[in-house]
Every structure is written in C-alpha cells, then in structure tokens.
Design a protein around this nucleic acid. Structure first.
Length: 561
RNA sequence: GUCCCAGUAGCUCAGCAGGAUAGAGCAACAGUUUCCUAAACUGUAGGUCGGGGGUUCGAAUCCCUCCUGGGACGCCA
C-alpha cells in the first residue's frame, strides 16, 4: 500500500535518469489542499538542468505518466499533482485494516532486539508529583510504540532510593520525627520532614554535613540507618503502586539506585584501570575537557559515590544482563548535561555500545512560570489530580449517559485518559504550565474526544448489526479524509518511535477522529440499506485503529461512554 | 559568564529532512438535535510566524546575530 513507490516508478523513467529514485522519494510531498491532489512532485529544481520553466517540465512529465492507480495527473504552477483512484485505494486500505486488525501498522524494523527504557523513576520518600507524571506517561507510551516498531522493550523503574537525601531525612526524623504520625500518613510526614530540613539548613548549614555523615553510615551498612531506610522505602512503594495500577502501568524491573551499591566498586576500579580517574579538589573525577564538557564526579571527598557512579554501574549491568541495542532514559531536560557526561565516560571507557544510548528529555511542569520544588513543599499531587478527573468524568456520565452500565469503570478510563492525553499531545520538550482547568477539559482536542469518537463507532456497529465483510467497500466521496488518515498509520508509527515522540500518535488520533466525526455528521450511515454494510466496514476499520492508537498512548477505549 | 531548550492568532499549541493560499483547539460571536451518543458538527472574527541580516527560484522551516523566557553548569538527583 505504498503508493508513493508507484509514483516513483513512474517518475524515474520519465526523468531519463536525471534523478536517482532516492532523490525522487525525498522530493515527493503531500499537497496542502485537497484540490491539489494526493501527492505532488515539484519541478523547480529541474528547471536549471533542463533550462525550461518548471511548469513546462511538469507538463512534459504529465504526458509520460500512465498508471491505473492514478485517476488524474496534472501540471499546476510547476508541480505535478497526482490524484489517486479513490475507489480502488479506499477498498484496499479498509480491506487491509480489516485483515490485520490491531496488527495493522506493526513494523518489523526492531527485529525483536532488546531495548531498555528507564522511566518514571520516582524518588522514595517523596510524593508522586505531577513532575513524575511526564516521565511515567512518556516512557510507558514509548515502550508500547517500540513494541509496535518491532523491538522487545524492558521497562525499568530506576527508583531514586539512595543518596544524601536519605541521610538528611534520617537526621530530620531523629530530630523532629514522630513514629505514630509517620505510620498514619507516611509520604505526607516524610515530605513535611524533608521540607523542614531544608528550611532549617538555610539557617544552620552544619545540618547538611550531618546529613552527609548519616548517608555515609547508611552506605557502610549501619543497622539503625538501614532500618529506617527500609521503612521509608516500603511505605513509598506502596503509594507508588496505587498510582501505577490506576494508570495501568507495569515494570520489568524495580532495581533502583540502591541495587547498585555493591556494583560500584567494580566500576570505579574499571575507570581507574583505564587511567581515567583523577583527583580534583579532594574528589575523584573523569576529565572530559576534550569533549568540551565539565568533569564527571565519580566519588566525593568523603569517599561516597554520586549518581553518576550509580548510573554507570546501571548502564553496565543493563548491557551485561539485557544485551540491549538501544537504551533510553526518559528523564527531564534539566539533566541533559548529566547524560552527556555519562555517555562520554562510557565512550572513554571503550564501550562501543554507548552509541545505542539516548537521553529522551522533556520539558518541565511549571507553576506560575517556575519550576516546582519539592524542597519548598510546592508540589501538586498526581493522585489528587487523577481523582478530580475521574470525579468530573463521573458527573459527565450521569448527565450524558445515565443508563450506562459500567459507570465507574468508564469514569476511570475517561478521567485517566484525559490526563494522559493532555500530557502526550504536545511535543515533549515544551514546558507545560500547570493548569487543572486544561487537564480537566473533555472537549476539543482531548483524550475524551478521541474516546468518544471510538464509542460512537462502536455504537454504530451495534445498532447496525454489522456483519464483517471485507469485500463490500464504500464509494462515499466524504470518506476520503478518513482513508488518507488510516493509510498514514505505519508512517506515523515509524516517525514517533524514531523521534521518541508519542505526540505524533496523539495528533494522528485527533486527525482521524476529526475526519470521522465530519463524516458522521454528513453521511447517514445506518439509513441507506444498500450501502449500510459497506459503510460499517469503514466504521469498523476506524474503530480498530482508534483503539490501537489509544492503546499505544496507554489509554483505554471504552465501547460506550 | 558558558552551554542546552523554547519564542507562530487573546490563550494552549500544530506545521520546521525549505515549497503552492500559515493551520487546529480553547475563549468570543452566529448557527445545527421529530434523525446513528451535541464529550459532536457548520460558519464568522482573529497572525509584522520575537527583531535584524544572510543562503535560495522559493524561508515559519536552514545559517549568523541580537532580544525575551526557562533550565543546567563539582561533592543533590
């Protein structure tokens, strides 16, 4: 179903070898307006070669093209505009979707090779905030898209369960903590302690040293420290699991930073063996001046490790255990420098596989134009936002479809879907100003809009008593925008993986939904007994693709809503 | 100060391996339901594509420069 290929085969001989097939492929474009056809070939560049006007060249090319798949070929303003035979193409596309069902759009490009995706990775003892939502939702979708692309993804939740923060937290707990309070509302109490610590440390900076000292005790296996740490960790994980269940996300590994404690010595040794480790101001570093990067800190002056060390150990562990061809890190854009350094060190260590590693950055969620800071207690809790969205969906269902049976299930699907889609529809790197109002919007370019379109299609199939029939195909002119959208899915999958960009899927779903709703408004699908089944075939193919697209974003597709 | 991202309609954003008339959604205004779910559809209005140079037959898209916002720059992650 690659009609571009057909066009290339017509153009290549028509140009007498002036251009390679590859060049022609690159030049073919999609016209902006429907009256300009389905594909276009610009002749401006050829004007120099032939010393003729672009339009004369276009006219000459038109003369030489002759293919049954093209209904009309015309020269307009220096372009060769090609119109596909819509009836034939429509039949082919719908038939293809019905044959392949949810497999439609599957690509074989990943060759089943393993890729690891490090995402979500919340910090223990801190609430799951809106900020973590981005990594979670983008990473989850990327894993699904990778599968569709043909890869075999390993989902890794690299929990932030180690680091000086725990020393600080232990200090805070010992000074102001209350066991009873902590047991009642662990995360809330831990956050209070964390915020208080940073407030106090502003006045008494020595507290920071105490925090570092306690962290060193933790790293050395001190029993009291260890015990507190385990307690904090367990309580936090319980909270996170609630959120993941709500979002329908699972991981293949929860190995966090602490998991690499006993694997760091080896890494430090490896760096040293290669002669890369240097002392600098009391700390041990790898110099990266040749790469025009600041040095990468490996150990602090007190001998304890840093996150870079753990990330190095993790990278090695993942390569040795999963044998990945690509390794992705879905982490905020503010850590770009860290990943550049990390990859540079791996390169210096002589690991050619550093080339398969990539940081997938994303913009921040801002409050009043500024970064939200846990330290100052300025966080918005994800769980609360999700609950509000679900509540709003409940209310809408009562208003709009009070007879719906699975009210609670659908309210969850729609509420959560709205939040996920709101996050994924825009380009990753854009910062997002936190706005509950925007997230809770269910009309226009939103998740619920796409889900609603799917439910509409499902309803038609039920009411129309659809019998699957791959041979009876529509001839409606109004259906063409739907066909072109359906046709584009494989390309969209390819682009969205290669650019690590789920928003392409979201935009595709909006296009398809808009095309379908327009069709729905202008064609009475169930009225014409003659064409009903053929039209329902189109409806069914739309339903299949919408559902699959929503799945790739991590969203459910309710049959009714 | 250095480096990284972003600047398109009142707001939120698409478009950016250069191409034909710069598009959506929201908000505003005007319509569509005896009819398949109105979470929908139709129409009106709204733009010096941050400014200035350059490359090109052609620039929102590529290059340079400046301005604005955000972020990162050694013992947090």
């Amino acid at each position: 179903m690659n009609f571009k290929h057909d066009l290339v085969e017509c153009l290549y001989p028509a140009l007498n070898g002036q251009l390679e097939r590859k060049q022609i492929v690159k030049m073919i474009e999609k016209p902006k307006f429907e009256q300009q056809g389905d594909m276009a070939f610009p002749c401006f560049e050829l004007a120099k070669i032939y010393r003729k006007s672009p339009n004369d060249i276009a006219l000459a090319i038109v003369e030489k093209i002759n293919s049954p798949i093209f209904e009309k070929v015309e020269a307009v303003g220096g372009y060769v505009n090609v119109f596909l035979n819509r009836k034939d193409v429509s039949s082919k596309v719908v038939k293809e979707v019905l044959l392949q069902k949810e497999q439609y759009g599957n690509l074989n490009l990943g060759k089943n090779e393993v890729i690891t995706i490090d995402f979500s990775s919340p910090n223990i003892a801190k609430p799951f905030s809106m900020g973590h939502l981005r990594s979670t939702v983008i990473g989850h979708s990327l894993a699904l898209i990778a599968e569709k692309y043909g890869y075999s993804p390993i989902r890794i939740n690299h929990l932030g369960d180690w680091g000086t923060q725990f020393g600080k937290l232990i200090v805070a707990y010992k000074m102001w903590g209350d066991e009873k309070k902590l047991k009642e509302a662990p995360i809330k109490e831990l956050l209070t302690l964390y915020v208080k610590f940073h407030e106090e440390a502003e006045k008494t900076p020595e507290l920071n040293d105490e925090g570092r000292a306690w962290f060193k005790r933790l790293e050395n296996g001190d029993e009291e420290a260890r015990h507190l740490w385990e307690w904090f960790r367990d309580e936090s994980l319980k909270e996170f699991t609630k959120i993941y269940d709500l979002l329908g996300i699972h991981f293949d590994s929860y190995h966090g930073e602490a998991f690499y404690n006993d694997k760091m010595e080896r890494v430090v040794q490896m760096i040293e063996d290669r002669g890369l480790l240097e002392e600098s101001q009391g700390a041990m570093v790898v110099q990266l001046s040749a790469e025009e990067l600041p040095p990468c800190l490996i150990t602090k002056k007190d001998g304890t490790t840093l996150y870079a060390t753990r990330d190095l150990a993790a990278a090695l562990y993942r390569k040795e255990n999963y044998h990945f061809t690509e390794s992705l890190y879905v982490v905020g854009h503010e850590q770009s420098l860290h990943f550049k350094q990390l990859f540079a060190v791996l390169k210096k260590m002589g690991f050619p596989w550093h080339e398969g590693m990539a940081h997938v950055p994303f913009g921040m969620i801002l409050k009043d134009g500024k970064k939200m800071s846990t330290r100052k207690g300025k966080v918005v809790l994800l769980e609360e936002v999700l609950e509000e969205a679900i509540q709003l969906a409940r209310e809408d269902i009562l208003k709009k479809n009070p007879n719906l049976v699975a009210k609670e299930e659908v309210a969850h699907q729609v509420g959560v879907g709205a939040i996920i889609f709101h996050d994924l529809k825009n380009f990753r790197l854009n910062d997002i100003e936190f706005s509950l109002e925007d997230m809770l919007r269910f009309e226009g370019e939103t998740g619920p809009y796409v889900q609603y379109t799917h439910a509409r299609a499902a309803s038609l199939l039920r009411k129309g008593n659809y019998q699957e029939d791959k041979e009876r195909m529509i001839g409606d002119k109004e259906a063409w925008p739907i066909i072109t959208a359906l046709m584009s899915l494989p390309d969209v999958i390819k682009r969205s993986y290669e650019q690590y960009d789920p928003s392409q899927i979201a935009k595709f779903l909006l296009d398809l939904s808009k095309a379908f709703n327009k069709y729905y408004a202008s064609v009475r699908i169930l009225d014409d007994s003659e064409q009903k089944q053929a039209r329902l075939s189109l409806v069914y193919s739309v339903k299949i693709v919408l559902k699959e697209g929503l799945r790739l974003l991590g969203m459910a597709a309710p049959e009714e809503m």
